[in-house]
């Protein structure tokens, strides 16, 4: 990783990347893989947004305890994103509503967006990567 920090110097091109998370944690590997890709991308100084819609909002639940299913609790890792300078976390209001959740149920500070705001945010990206 020490090498990667130096690799990005000099390229200078900053693109808007959106990582779109639409899956619940643990049932598939998408959520964990998506998070790892975001952490790696952080080394490249790009404009990164992380978005949680549909079942993806379940990834951010407070109070997750995975001991009983013997898998890693990566919900704690979302709190490390700030240290990686990834501070643009967005959650879809309708997806929260449909699951009986509010912002207070989430483990990190997020910006909750209405569907048209989310749609515009997505449309202005250079790259959207889905998980």
């Amino acid at each position: 990783m020490s090498d990667m920090d130096e690799m990005d110097e000099g390229s200078g091109i900053v693109k808007k990347f959106m990582f779109l998370n639409r899956k619940a944690p643990h049932g598939t590997v998408y959520a964990l893989e998506g998070l790892e890709v975001v952490l790696i991308t952080a080394a490249f100084d790009q404009d990164v947004s992380m978005v949680f819609t549909d079942d993806g909002v379940y990834q951010l639940m407070k109070g997750i305890d995975t001991k009983g299913i013997e898998v890693k609790d990566f919900s704690k890792t979302y709190r490390a994103l700030e240290g990686y300078d990834i501070e643009k976390l967005y959650v879809d209001q309708a997806s929260l509503d449909a699951r009986g959740l509010t912002e207070d149920d989430l483990i990190v500070d997020v910006t909750v967006l209405a569907v048209d705001e989310m749609a515009n945010l997505m449309a202005e990206q250079d790259v959207v990567i889905s998980f």
Partner: peptide
């Protein structure tokens, strides 16, 4: 223990 990951060196240095 807090974040369930080993930090990248840049993040470690800052922290």
């Amino acid at each position: 223990a807090e974040y369930q990951i080993a930090p990248a060196v840049r993040v470690l240095t800052k922290a």
